[in-house]
Each structure stands twice: as structure tokens, then as C-alpha cells.
Design a protein around this nucleic acid. Structure first.
Lengths: 211, 211, 211, 211
DNA sequence: CATGAATGAGCTTTCATTCAT
DNA sequence: CATGAATGAAAGCTCATTCAT
């Protein structure tokens, strides 16, 4: 069953892997099943990927890149830094919900699999976090000072990211009560996270120090 | 290796399953490994649990109960509703980080395994969400009115929960940058979520409507 | 296809493994083939052996023990030390030719497989060499003296062993010209090796020093 | 990666095969690995060799020729027939230890692979035995007579060869106690074998007839 | 002359589960 | 109450080889 050459099969393998992922979940993602979906033998996959790890890493990398393109695209032309942060938050969740199969392997995989994640790919993946840190940084523009300013920003953007991730992952896992209006929940999460800037600059009453 | 009868072995199985879970992760949780840890045969496990699903569901149920006990205990004697919400948020994260093996199977499992989750257990699990809804409800005490008042509260508490879950799950999966101060991130997440009440009651400026 | 319990299958596995070994050679000795020969599934083998290595090591150990029993039995009641050495040499070759399948895995395996050979088994295996050293030692009885006496004996018995092994292994591998009288070759090898004692004691003319 | 045409690639394949053999052992010698080492595809190998067997046979043939050149060269100018035999014995072992990768496939392969060994090559390989027979023959020069004289010589030289092979193969397989002085063992083996002439001519006391 | 694409057979091993005792 | 014996399905992976280009 020869293909039209030129790596068309490689593309097909990646696509079908995502398909399997979407329909049967990561647990059932096996080389044989992928091969079956593609219409080739399991052996053929090894012509394009050194092993299963490499295949998955490629998939993750594609996902990371796709997410980053989406996020950076979304804030183009958005002038207000505050608004930019909000847009990012919203796009993150939406991208996750639109690409659950990517999202699952990107962020919901057992850490064991990630230990061997190549450094070059890791750097690309981090951009998805940095874009939040940057937006937050511009958003507070100089108002957060002191030695630990940068650390504070990184902490805050990590907190934002975890919150967004929580929403995406629970929706994907179908753990959020279906009787709730999904859009409303998303909006609420976005609202909660996108006020981080105000907190950092202390621009509202709450002066509580948390234990 | 006969036990003192009467389900002592059942207890041992559950405990050892958690042990295996903690030490080797869910991926490596197999009937044989549990049996090995217990000191019985894999067959024996089937005397107490219909199958692997049932065992895991029991484990999840125990975890859900443990979490609920912990959460309810934590707000006993806390008068301020606002403070109560904050305490709950903090306790949720802390419990998750203290009981990662429970948390992993409770909330980080592929939905496939949950599809068969028994209704009775499901109801018990929901209390962990409801406790947030209640706290939030008391926190806004009557200030959120109208037909959709209840829905709004449920939406808001779902949003809180997802944010908390995001933090716990990413920490467990070791996906949060290790160079960050974990306590600081947790504090930040707690801070972000525990201001939900203010939002609902409109007690601050932001009047943005989210697209 | 349940067996008569009590490890009868374990025995059958070992026996059939030897059978496969004899008929198809080590290269084709696979878990599946063994299972096929036994009449069980490959999985069942793992009930009795941790893995393929363990199975082969058991086989080797059995062979080593069998050889040792044979060798020690052969010299019982042989009074003359010189004659004892000759008998050992002859029995070694004969045992090898009678048990080619054992011999092949015992001494003709790639060292890679032997790296993991358990220490306890290794000690048992060494007895087959030591029995030669002892016989040689008694054979020269005190006539070889000096600091390096023991080392000399060990060197000489190693040389004897390698010669015997060479004959066995080449016969097994069918590399010796079939037109030759096998018994004659064996007799010649035995003759060559069993005069080692004379050499050590210098009881004949040859005083050449070998570079 | 086109070569300078005319079989340069064939040469590279053979050389790299030996390299792989030396570094990874026969077990890991696969067409793919050879191709990798050469820098061509596995398919290309089939342009020069009908199959893996043919490749290995060629390698064996080269080895057999190399050994023969070495052996014949070694006795040039050695006048004494007795000394010639000794030199041959020593060179055989040394050549084997210096070219373990050749030796392994030449003499330590499962007979299955040799069954298909081409007759022409087989004849060339035999010269390595005949050179021993000849040396032995000259060594006893007319003193061994009778109908079976030739057969006796062939038997004796086969015995010599097996002894030498035993030493080489066990050293290569790392089965000889590493605490022993290798040179001493080799010297001992050479000593044992090179006295075959004396035995044949009955030039020493031992009049034992071997059972 | 050389390759890229592909395969089928085979490998060791792990898994959840069943059944007679 | 508990086990020993056994299984079928599946996993990831490697191999020698073929064929059209």
C-alpha cells in the first residue's frame, strides 16, 4: 500500500494518532491502533518515528506550537495590556476545548513520559507560559517594583495558567456538571484570572495577607 | 496467608493499592502488583472487588470522603463566610498535595473509567463541590438575587473548583516550574479564587462584560 | 489445559526447551516455541520463570549439575590419579556429545547472556573446572612446588579444559570432517590432554621454553 | 551517497560489518545496523549480496583466507618441522585473539548457517586444517607408516585444531577465568598440542592404549 | 547504482481475568 | 476464604526482505 511518498504517511500517522487519541483516549493509543487507523502496519511507523515516545513528543510539539500561534495571533492589535491578558486567558481555554486531543497529551500526561521530552521542544513549549508572563508584565507596567518583582510576576502568571488549565482539563475529562452553562463557567474563570494585574498593583481594597 | 477474617484483607488491599499508586503511579497500578504488595494472590482481590474498576471506584470513594471530612472540618468555627471560602480553597489544594495518590485517581483519571462510576458514589463525591457552593452562597447572602441566582452561584463555585484543581493537578504532575516558590503560587491561586464573592455582588468597579 | 499441578509444567517447560534447543538451535529458542512444544501458552511460562534469562539460567544450572555428577561419578573407585585425569577428560567429551543441547547453552552462549548469571549458580558451575584442577593436583602430588605452584596447576587445568571444550564444541557444531573416525579424534584429544601431569613434573625430555 | 563505483561500497559493507561485529557482537549484527555504519540503506546491501547469509559467507571466506595467509607466512623460513608445528599452533591462537570478530563467525556460528556454505569456499577454508596436517606429516616424516598412516595424521591434526579452537573460542567468549595469566594458558595449550608428533612416532614411554 | 516505502513474521513481556479446587 | 494454574489479548519493538522508481 505505497503512499504518494514525500512524508505524506508521516502526516497521516500524526493525524490518525490524534484521531485515536480523541476517540479512544491516551490509554488506548498504541502503535498498532495508529497503524490500523492509518491503514499501514505498525512497522511502518518506525520508519518515521524512532519510537512511540518520539511520536508523542512530535505531537506535543505540534500542539505547543499551534497553541502558541493561536495565542500570539489573538493579541495582535489589542492595545490595552489588561485586555490582552483577558484575551489570552479566553483563547487558552477555547483552544484547549477545541483541541482536546492535543491538550490531553500536552498537559495531562503522566510526568514519566515527559522526563524524556527533548530540551529543544521544551523551550518551545515554555513560550506558552511566557506569553502570559509578558502580558502580565506589561499590564502592571513598572508598578510592581523591588527585587522580587520578576518572581512575583512569574508566580502570578503561573497561578493564572493553573487556573485556566484546571478549567480546560476538567471540561475535557467531562468532570464539570453538564447542567452548568459551559460558557458561563469559562467566562467566570477568565474573569477571575484576568484581574491578577489589579492585585499585583494593589489597585483594590483587599489588603489581606494570606497565611 | 489467611487474615483475621472479616474483611481485614479488603482493607489491606486498599491500603496497598494506595501505596503502589504513591510509589509507582497509576500507570503501574496492576492487580498483580497490588497482590504482591499485600502478600496475597491476584485472584484473592477478586473476592473483595468485582474487578479493577470496582477497586478503583472504592478507592476514589474513600478519597472523596476523606476530602470532604477534611474540608468540612476546616471551616468549623470559622465565622466569616468570606474567610470560610478562603479556608476551603486553601485546604482543597493542601489536601490534594498531601494525598496525591488519592487525588490522582479522584480527579485526574480518563473519563472512561468514570463513566461506570456508581451513582451512589457520585452523589457522595458531589458534596465536595457543594461545600464550595454553600460557602459562596452564605458569602453573598441574599445579595445575588433573581431567577438565575442559584445557577450563578453554581457557576462561580465551579470556576473556583476548576482553578483549585488546576493548581493541584499541575503540581502533582510536576508541570509547574520548580524554580517558583510553591507556597507563593498556592497563595496566589487562593487569592484569585476567594474573591469570587466580591465579583458576584458587584462590590468592585470592573463592569466589563465578557464577550 | 490444566496440568497435574505441583510443578509438572515447570519440568515440562525445561524439557521442551531442551528439545527445541536440540532440534532448532539456540537462535530459534523463543518463549512461544517452547510454549508450543509444551502445549501451553507463552504466558504460562512466566508463572514458573521470571523471564527468559531465568529459564535459560535454570537450564544451564541443571546442565552444570548433571555434568558434575557425571564427572565425579566417573572417577569414583579410580585409584591412579593419572588415570583419573584421563577418565575425566574422556567423560567430559562424552557427556558433551551426549547432551549437546545442554552443552550448547552451558558453554557456547554469547557472553552477554552470561553477564547476568547468578553468583550462586556460577559457583556451582565452577566445580566442573575445579574437579580437573584437583585431579591434576593429586596427579603431580607435591612434585610441583614453589610459590606459583597453585597458579601453574590452574593454568594447566584451564588448558586441558579448553582443549576438551574445543573438541566437544566443534563436534556439536558439526565442523569436524565427517570422514574422520570420531572416536579416534576423541581418543587423541584425551591423550594430548592427559599427559599434562608429566609435563608439569618435567618427567620427560622436552625442555623447550616457549616464547 | 554514491560511491566511486565498482564495488567500493561492497568493500565498505564488509568492513563495517566487521566493525559492527567487533563492537556489538554477532547477535546484534543486522542488515540495518551495517547499513547505518556504512552510511547507506539496508536495501543497498542487497545489490552486492544476495542475502545476509551470502554476506556472512563472504566475510567468513575473507577470514579463512586471512588466517591461511597468516599461518603460511608464519612458517616460511622455519626449517625444523617440529618447530613449524609449534609456530602454527601459536599463530592460530594469536590470530584468533587478534581477529575475534572474524573468528566468531568463522568457527563459532550455529551449523545452520554453515549448511549453506558454498563448496568453493569450503575448499578454501579447509586449507587451514591441511596446513596442520602437512606440518605434522613432515614432522613425522615417514616414521608413521602402514595403510592408515594418512588417516592417523588427519586425526591427530584434527585433535590439535580442536584444542587450539577451544582456547581461542573460550577466550573470545570470556569464559576463561580472568585471574589466570592468558599468555601462560596459551603457552600451555601450544605445548600440549605441539607434542603430537612425538606421540605418533611413539618416541616416548607412554605405551598406554586408550580405551 | 541506490533509494524510499513498506511489510509480515517474530520477539519478550504485562495485563485483567477465570475457574476448579 | 484463598489459591494455583492458566489464558487471550495486547503491548512496544526489531528483523530480513521486497519492490517500484
Amino acid at each position: 500500500m505505497p503512499r504518494s511518498s514525500n512524508g505524506a504517511l508521516k502526516r497521516a500517522i500524526l493525524d490518525c494518532a490524534r484521531e485515536v487519541l480523541l476517540e479512544q483516549g491516551y490509554t488506548h493509543l498504541s502503535m498498532r491502533r495508529i497503524a490500523n487507523a492509518v491503514g499501514c502496519t505498525a512497522t511502518s511507523i518506525y520508519l518515521y518515528f524512532q519510537n512511540k515516545d518520539a511520536l508523542i513528543h512530535t505531537l506535543i510539539d505540534e500542539g505547543m506550537d499551534g497553541l502558541f500561534q493561536d495565542l500570539s495571533g489573538s493579541i495582535e492589535g489589542v492595545a490595552s495590556p489588561t485586555e490582552r491578558l483577558r484575551v489570552l486567558a479566553r483563547r487558552y481555554i477555547e483552544w484547549g476545548l477545541e483541541n482536546p486531543e492535543y491538550y490531553e497529551i500536552m498537559f495531562m500526561l503522566h510526568p514519566e513520559r515527559m522526563e524524556r521530552y527533548p530540551a529543544a521542544m521544551y523551550r518551545r513549549a515554555r513560550r506558552n507560559l511566557e506569553i502570559f508572563t509578558e502580558a502580565l508584565s506589561e499590564s502592571v507596567d513598572g508598578k510592581v517594583t523591588g527585587e522580587s518583582a520578576e518572581a512575583e510576576l512569574r508566580v502570578a502568571s503561573a497561578a493564572i495558567w493553573t487556573a485556566l488549565h484546571g478549567a480546560v482539563s476538567l471540561f475535557i475529562a467531562q468532570r464539570v456538571d453538564v447542567s452548568l452553562d459551559r460558557d458561563a463557567v469559562v467566562a467566570e474563570v477568565v474573569a477571575q484570572t484576568s484581574r491578577a494585574a489589579e492585585r499585583l498593583t494593589g489597585s483594590f481594597s483587599s489588603s489581606t495577607t494570606f497565611k
